[in-house]
Deep mutational scan, measured.
Amino acid sequence: HERALMVNRLQKLTRMLRVHPDPKWKQEQQELIKRLK
């Protein structure tokens, strides 16, 4: 369940980064990718 939330968050971040590349979001995205591996 928590994994699904993280995947959701990651997808949302990816969409937001396409619109507005924010370093903070980029960092969070990298963190999520690490944790999901």
Rank of each mutant, 00 (worst) to 15 (best):
I33Y: 06
V7P: 02
R3D: 02
L17K: 00
Q27K: 13
R3E: 06
L13S: 01
K26D: 02
Q11I: 15
L32H: 00
L36V: 01
P21K: 08
E31P: 00
P21D: 14
L13F: 00
H1F: 12
K12L: 14
L32S: 03
K12Y: 15
V7N: 04
P21T: 06
E2V: 11
K34P: 00
N8L: 15
T14P: 02
P21N: 12
K34H: 10
K26L: 09
V7F: 12
R35W: 12
E31M: 10
L10V: 04
V19Q: 13
P23N: 05
P21G: 04
K24W: 04
V7Q: 05
E2I: 12
P23I: 05
K26A: 05
K34G: 06
I33H: 02
Q27W: 05
R35I: 13
R9W: 05
A4W: 15
A4Q: 15
Q30T: 10
H1K: 11
T14E: 13
Q30G: 04
K37H: 09
P23Q: 03
L5Y: 09
H1S: 13
L36T: 01
L5D: 07
R35T: 08
K26Q: 06
P23Y: 04
E28W: 06
L10N: 00
I33A: 03
K34I: 09
E2G: 07
V7C: 15
K34D: 05
R18K: 14
E2W: 12
Q27H: 07
E31N: 05
V7A: 10
I33K: 03
K24H: 05
R15H: 11
P23A: 08
N8S: 14
V7E: 08
R35K: 14
W25M: 12
R18V: 05
D22G: 03
N8C: 02
H20K: 14
Q11L: 13
V7W: 15
K26W: 07
M6H: 02
E2S: 08
N8M: 14
E28R: 02
P21H: 12
L36H: 01
N8R: 15
L17R: 01
L10G: 00
H1N: 13
T14V: 09
W25Q: 05
P23M: 03
R15W: 13
L36Q: 01
R3W: 14
L13P: 00
K37C: 15
N8G: 08
Q27M: 14
D22T: 11
M16N: 02
P21A: 09
W25S: 04
H1D: 13
L13W: 00
L13Y: 00
H1E: 11
W25Y: 12
H20D: 11
W25G: 04
Q29P: 00
L13I: 09
E31T: 09
M16H: 03
L17M: 06
L17V: 02
M6Y: 06
R15I: 12
D22A: 04
Q30P: 03
R9C: 05
K24T: 09
A4L: 12
R3V: 13
I33L: 06
M16A: 03
E2Q: 10
L36Y: 04
K37L: 13
M16S: 04
L32W: 01
Q30E: 12
L13G: 00
K12S: 06
T14M: 10
L13M: 01
I33M: 04
R15E: 15
R18C: 06
M6L: 13
V7Y: 14
W25K: 05
E31L: 08
Q29W: 14
P23R: 04
L13H: 01
R18L: 13
R35V: 09
R9S: 01
R18F: 04
H20F: 09
A4Y: 11
K34V: 07
K37Q: 15
K24P: 01
T14F: 08
A4D: 08
L32C: 00
H1Y: 14
P21I: 06
I33F: 05
Q11T: 11
H20L: 08
K12M: 14
Q29G: 01
L17H: 01
A4G: 05
K26Y: 11
P21V: 04
Q11P: 02
H1W: 14
K34R: 14
E2R: 06
Q30N: 07
L5V: 12
L36C: 02
N8K: 15
R18H: 05
E28C: 09
R3Y: 15
L17W: 01
R35D: 03
V7G: 08
W25A: 06
E2P: 06
Q30V: 10
L5P: 03
E31Q: 08
L36M: 03
H1P: 12
M6D: 04
A4E: 12
Q11W: 13
V7I: 14
E31D: 10
K24E: 08
M16I: 07
Q30D: 07
R35F: 12
L13V: 06
N8W: 14
K24R: 12
K37S: 11
K37P: 02
P23V: 04
V7L: 10
E2M: 09
A4K: 14
L5N: 09
I33D: 02
L5T: 11
L17E: 02
M6W: 07
N8Q: 15
M6V: 06
V19E: 11
H20Q: 07
R18M: 11
R15A: 13
V19K: 14
P23G: 05
M6N: 01
P23K: 11
I33S: 00
D22W: 04
N8E: 15
R18Q: 12
R3Q: 07
K37I: 09
E31K: 07
H20I: 07
L5F: 08
L5Q: 15
P21W: 15
T14S: 10
R15Q: 15
Q11N: 13
L5I: 10
R15G: 06
R35N: 08
L36P: 01
Q27I: 11
Q29A: 12
H1T: 14
A4P: 03
P21F: 15
R18G: 07
Q27A: 11
A4F: 09
N8Y: 12
Q27E: 12
V7D: 03
P23W: 04
K37W: 13
K26N: 03
L10A: 01
K12H: 13
R15N: 10
Q27G: 04
P23F: 06
L36W: 02
I33N: 03
R9H: 04
K24I: 12
N8P: 00
K34C: 15
A4I: 13
E31W: 07
L13C: 05
E31G: 04
H20N: 09
R9P: 01
K34Y: 08
L32Y: 02
Q29L: 15
H20S: 10
E2A: 07
M16W: 12
Q29R: 14
M6F: 03
E31R: 08
E28F: 04
K26I: 09
T14A: 10
L10K: 00
K26R: 09
Q27S: 08
L32K: 00
K37T: 12
L10D: 00
E2L: 10
K26E: 06
T14K: 10
M16Q: 03
V19S: 11
A4M: 14
Q29I: 10
R3P: 02
L32Q: 00
L5G: 08
R35G: 04
Q11H: 12
K37G: 10
W25P: 00
Q27F: 13
E31A: 07
P23L: 05
L10R: 00
K24M: 10
D22P: 00
K12I: 12
Q29C: 12
K24S: 09
P23E: 05
E28P: 00
L32R: 00
Q11V: 13
L13A: 01
E31H: 07
L36R: 02
L10F: 02
K12V: 13
L10W: 02
Q30H: 05
Q11K: 15
K24A: 10
I33G: 02
